[in-house]
Design a protein around this nucleic acid. Structure first.
Length: 574
RNA sequence: GCAUCGAUGGUCUAGUGGUAUGACUUAGGCCUUCCAAGCCUAUAGCCCGGGUUCAAUUCCCGGUCGAUGCACCA
């Protein structure tokens, strides 16, 4: 029992937050179960996220399957780009990245080679682990996506999604119609994603199955510097660690979002807006600002699709700075890729304020003559004529590799002025992508505290009230003289107000307080003998352990206000 | 995946080639008028598979999980 990680994970296991999965058969690395309190807490974190993105931002949530057909991930680049070329050293059985072996052996451009070529090229290289010459090895692709087949005996390949984002991209046309063909709009998804990590470690930091909350904000590429609500966060200030500062090993500099955009530190207003919103959200779930920073990706660190990219990183006592949220400008990469792969246009028609008058020359072939004359070449000629530059004698076109002269009487040239009412554009995508499990871990780690109460050590999870799994505990001081009946009635009235209240009459009162402290229940209500006289109870604050008396009939509204933060416990004390 | 170390009730732990110690927790009871008090009782354990042995929780081999280092982390 040395550091907070071990202590908090021990508590999490003991008290029903996080369990190793399928423990009776032996756990599996990279998978976890959320126990009753963990699942409740995670749901609260997700619902705070929903409050920010769905309610405040108006980005509606969709829910797509966790398995998708191969074409989706061919388009997204994951089939190709998400796999590593690997080989196994025949001497020490170590698995090695084949391209890394090749680079270490001075072989140029290993990533462009086919597997067989690469295998032949690295035969003379040495193994990084045992330093033997490899000799004959097989190079194979290790894809981080879990593969499966769809249907019985089917050859149809499917993959478990490695991110939730693709769902919003493949549904783009439907979403666009839903939002009545106007930019900007956003869609979000909270759900499971899967990556077959080679070596998951670090508890719930690197999982093979994890929960992502992703927002895809679709915006006109020319409007990225005009976020309609930017002023809301323009003065929001936080330390930013740019890639330039990282290369110079400098510290992060506090900066407002307005300043960051003006100085070009953050690429555009949209990205800056969501950087600030992310900071706001993380602080809301209980991340201490001093343990939160925003770091810009180094140019060679960015994913294949992104231009500018910022990570929200949370400092963990055990793991250092942990990437918890990624904020990327994915440009039009995904929509273009899916449009090409699927053949479905993924564009938005943007109307001009004023229609543009454009001079256009149309060449209208006389197909009744052309068709008879050129028969099976007629179609190619028709298409070629559209781009031809005819003279008074006629037009020279190339059809099926053959040069053909079309006399001028076989087509009509019509010059006209037409109205262009708008244009089709491919939106850019701003993507905030949150790792819910990492957020939950951060909340657990940062909430863990030990203090001393009456000379006794006390373990207390200092969750903010809005993420605490149990919201309030209700105790009768004694299990007699109807105190327990009154306490049950109080718990019932709180349940009716939608509050998760836990009744407990087991053991000494002090023990019950400590039990609730350890699972982070922010408030405890105790029914005592005064209650019978004046219809009041005590309400106790977890962090200060102070108590105030309050009338029973005011409990539901007071507890609600304490939980949503609109009322502070200290203001009850006066 | 490789290497090293580890694994005993829910938790922490003692110990052993003959099925296991103590504490805490939990449950029931007594007592108790606000912060892990006391008393009685109860529940519950040797990570999994194979080998050696009359007998394995213990020794050996393999695996799983965890920690650490290496590699990996789109």
């Amino acid at each position: 029992m040395s550091d907070v990680f071990e202590k908090v994970m021990d508590l999490a296991k003991r008290r029903g937050f996080i369990w190793p999965t399928s423990e009776c058969y032996g756990a599996v690395a990279g998978f976890i179960d959320y126990g009753p309190l963990g699942a409740m807490m995670k749901r609260r974190v997700e619902n705070i996220w929903r409050d920010f993105y769905v309610i405040q931002e108006g980005c509606y949530e969709i829910e797509c399957p966790t398995i998708a057909q191969e074409a989706v991930f061919i388009a997204s680049g994951h089939v190709k780009g998400f796999s590593d070329k690997m080989c196994q050293c025949p001497h020490c059985k170590e698995f090695l990245r084949a391209d890394h072996v090749a680079e270490a052996g001075g072989i140029k451009n290993p990533s462009t080679m086919k597997n067989e070529e690469l295998a032949a090229a690295i035969a003379s290289c040495t193994c990084a682990a045992c330093e033997e010459v490899l000799g004959t090895v097989e190079v194979f692709n290790f894809n981080l996506m879990f593969q499966t087949t769809i249907g019985p005996g089917s050859q149809r390949v499917g993959y478990l999604r490695p991110e939730t984002a693709q769902g919003m991209f493949v549904d783009f046309s439907r979403l666009l119609r839903f939002y009545r063909d106007k930019l900007p709009f956003g869609a979000v998804q909270i759900g499971k994603a899967y990556r077959n990590e080679i070596s998951p470690r670090q508890g719930m930091i690197r999982l093979r199955e994890f929960t992502q909350a992703e927002a895809e904000i679709f915006v006109h590429p020319d409007e990225k510097n005009h976020h309609p609500s930017f002023k809301r966060y323009a003065d929001y200030t936080m330390p930013l660690l740019t890639y330039v500062q990282q290369e110079k090993c400098e510290e992060a500099v506090p900066m407002s979002m307005q300043e960051a955009v003006d100085k070009g530190v953050i690429a555009n207003e949209y990205l800056a807006y969501y950087v600030a919103l992310t900071h706001h959200l993380l602080v809301t779930i209980g991340i201490k600002p001093g343990r939160l920073r925003f770091r810009q990706h180094l140019p060679d660190e960015r994913a294949h699709y992104a231009t500018d990219c910022w990570d929200a990183e949370i400092r963990s006592e055990r793991f250092g700075w942990v990437e918890t949220v990624g904020l990327a400008d994915r440009t039009d990469y995904d929509l273009k890729a899916h449009a090409q792969q699927s053949g479905t246009p993924m564009t938005v028609f943007i109307q001009y304020d004023e229609p543009k008058k454009v001079a256009r020359r149309r060449i209208i072939p006389n197909m009744s003559v052309l068709g008879k004359q050129y028969r099976n070449k007629a179609k190619a000629i028709f298409e070629a004529l559209a781009n031809a530059t005819p003279t008074a004698e006629g037009a020279d076109v190339e059809a099926d590799g053959e040069k053909i002269h079309i006399p001028a009487d076989l087509f009509e040239v019509r010059d006209e002025i037409v109205d262009i009412r708008g244009e089709d554009i491919v939106p850019h995508v701003i993507e905030p992508s949150y790792g819910i499990d990492r957020m939950c871990y951060a909340v657990l780690e940062q909430s863990y505290d030990e203090d001393t109460a009456d000379g006794e050590a006390r373990t207390v999870m200092r969750f903010p009230p809005n993420v605490a799994p149990i919201q309030v505990a209700v105790f009768p001081l004694m299990t007699r003289d109807e105190l327990d009946t009154i306490a049950h009635e109080i718990a019932r009235s709180l349940h009716k107000a939608g509050i998760l209240a836990e009744y407990d009459d087991s053991g000494a009162i002090g023990r019950r307080y400590r039990r609730q402290d350890e699972i982070g229940t922010p408030f405890a209500i105790t029914v005592d003998y005064d209650t019978k006289d004046d219809q009041t109870v005590t309400i106790r604050d977890r962090d200060s352990m102070k108590q105030v008396r309050i009338a029973i009939d005011k409990l539901p509204s007071t507890v609600c206000a304490l939980l949503d933060g609109s009322l502070k416990f200290t203001s009850l004390e006066s």
